[in-house]
Design a protein around this nucleic acid. Sequence first.
DNA 1: AATGAATGAGCCTTCATTCAT
DNA 2: GATGAATGAAGGCTCATTCAT
Lengths: 212, 212, 212, 212
Amino acid sequence: MASRTVTASPSREASTPDSAPTTDRRQDILNAALACAAEAGVESVSIDRVRARCGASVGSIYHHFGSREGIVAALFFDIFDEQSRHIQAQLAQAQAPEQGVRALVTGYLDWVVAQPVRARFLFQAREVVAGGPRAGELAKCARERNQALLDWFEPHRQRGAVLELPCELMPSLVMGPVQSYCRAWLSGSSGLPSPETYRDELAEAAWKSVRA
Amino acid sequence: MASRTVTASPSREASTPDSAPTTDRRQDILNAALACAAEAGVESVSIDRVRARCGASVGSIYHHFGSREGIVAALFFDIFDEQSRHIQAQLAQAQAPEQGVRALVTGYLDWVVAQPVRARFLFQAREVVAGGPRAGELAKCARERNQALLDWFEPHRQRGAVLELPCELMPSLVMGPVQSYCRAWLSGSSGLPSPETYRDELAEAAWKSVRA
Amino acid sequence: MASRTVTASPSREASTPDSAPTTDRRQDILNAALACAAEAGVESVSIDRVRARCGASVGSIYHHFGSREGIVAALFFDIFDEQSRHIQAQLAQAQAPEQGVRALVTGYLDWVVAQPVRARFLFQAREVVAGGPRAGELAKCARERNQALLDWFEPHRQRGAVLELPCELMPSLVMGPVQSYCRAWLSGSSGLPSPETYRDELAEAAWKSVRA
Amino acid sequence: MASRTVTASPSREASTPDSAPTTDRRQDILNAALACAAEAGVESVSIDRVRARCGASVGSIYHHFGSREGIVAALFFDIFDEQSRHIQAQLAQAQAPEQGVRALVTGYLDWVVAQPVRARFLFQAREVVAGGPRAGELAKCARERNQALLDWFEPHRQRGAVLELPCELMPSLVMGPVQSYCRAWLSGSSGLPSPETYRDELAEAAWKSVRA
DNA sequence: AATGAATGAGCCTTCATTCAT
DNA sequence: GATGAATGAAGGCTCATTCAT
């Protein structure tokens, strides 16, 4: 499963379109780390395995990331941002609250299906990052993402088009089911069909649980 | 059902003074392993740390569990079963489908709040066990748990009291939101209030997403 | 210089004269560590070098000493005790205060000449140990050794046979010159003759500086 | 004599605002190296730590000193010369041999008390420098210093005002006690009072041990 | 059932040094 | 003079596991 190629975050490519081969050591290392994680889990991302895979030297890896955990964290934040932007872009096109909820669910689901390796890494690495020195940064990112979601709904909620639920609950109600399903699917051992199979059902369920 | 529960608190020993010194080496080891995991994650459960914590010898640990992974798996299945029984017991008392959904959600939620250390271990250790030699056993247990849930709902579904959703979806729809919230709460870094705060809202949302 | 063989502390042998080949791994490791230090300084006592020299495995070394520093400290205390006992034995045979001072100086000097490798290690390792976790223990040992010296002189001092100097000063006055000379001799680069050459002069000078 | 002194305290920069930005890179690096050594011993003086502390680049450090050892040696010789000049200046003012001995002892003692960080570095770095490529230079400096001492005493010795001791012994007899005390004081862990407390006693003892 | 010494692979990290810009 | 990316050897330490007692 997850035969997707492990490539550089597309956002990076876009931000340096000037010239040069762009064969960043930094990016090579991140790619190698993701490949390791995809094969055998985040814990398997060791300096030596990364080194063996991308040809960088130990010193070079430390020059760029400072520690083993630094690699995992850098990769995590790269992918987390990418995912956030994807979902945000979907949400931005929605008008009605139902469209918004559906955009969030299907936006997430589509991204996971398109990027299963990265999605799996996000699930695996989150706990690692949350227990490391960049935990505060992670908390901030997560808060911002949730806040953007809540801000979008706020006008609809005031109009009474959406239940007046505590904002701490919204993320779990809207995203909980689809995340739960995707997590089980990505684990591979469940034998579940692709999330796309239940695209509508998952979106529908989320909407039902929060509509007025 | 009371015998063999693995608690992090040392008070357990005192609460079961029935017969003989129940102070099993086996149990000591499991308790120590849980304490390690609670402090620094499942990966920190090493033979040496467990040994240092419970005073058992290396040989003794191997005698009882055969391998490092054996400890984690044994603890995982103990706790998983305990949780399953708790939820099952709640479900068994329900009659109407709405009661059933609410029993599943609040049964899970109450257990998590009552056993946060164990609940956290379950989240952490699942992936480890799923990647080990007892992966099949885990899959079987998970399937059985889901099947029990589905079996309970089957008559109501046939009566049209519950949506005719694909059975692969049910667990995510019913348990997704509450698990998502509990996971975030247990991570500690989110600053979320206790799941009990939103007991009703979480149960209500689950029901709305699957009712006919 | 310093062609002395690197052997186990003689005190250890004496304390286990029962049976068995006494081929302690522990002692093998200490011997190897001393040999490393003799060749290239304390900093050169690395796990791998020790391992290569005595055939012990990495794990075995850690089993016995817990850390690289643990080896150095264990060796240091072994030798420090040995030296202290030697000097103490010489002092114990003295009667008059002049004999005492001479016993201390020549006792130290003779031990250094007999055990140049160990003496050199003591100079080198002291700072390392003083900066490590067993610093307190070192301070205690040093205090005890000084106290024994002061206790011996106390009656003579009260009789006015020795200057009434602050006790903090005594060790430096009595042992300072001989230690200074031995340190320079052991460093090897000074080209100085053996301390034995100046046995009497060093003892005489120490006595002059503290006699009444 | 004032230019080129390496001080640990940052106040130096402010005290020499004569001409141009004297803020040499070279000097910055030496200051940083001394600060490292003061915090965690000479072995802790690494290119990277120095770099982190003074903001210089790796390349810049190599441009100025050629190697890690180059930094330590440069600093050592700077401080050694400074100390030698200080003691020499004190000795130059003495007339009688007793004054000379006292000048040597108190000159040394006063410098150590005024420059404890540098004094400590001298003790620590000596062995390192003695084992490096500039060992010969060190030996030469040390010999010169001793020779100056002996030259000063030679006329007094010929007059019989000072004992006719082997010249190899003089440094240890005169400086041994004060160095021994200062070394112990600088180690910090001994809890000894400042050497100034025993200024007279140390000078007196040195004189007694060498006077005719 | 239990003990603890021994093993060696493997991990993270630091380090001095080089070199193209 | 200065910069910082890159290198690879070396070091300390943890780990799961085996085995004789």
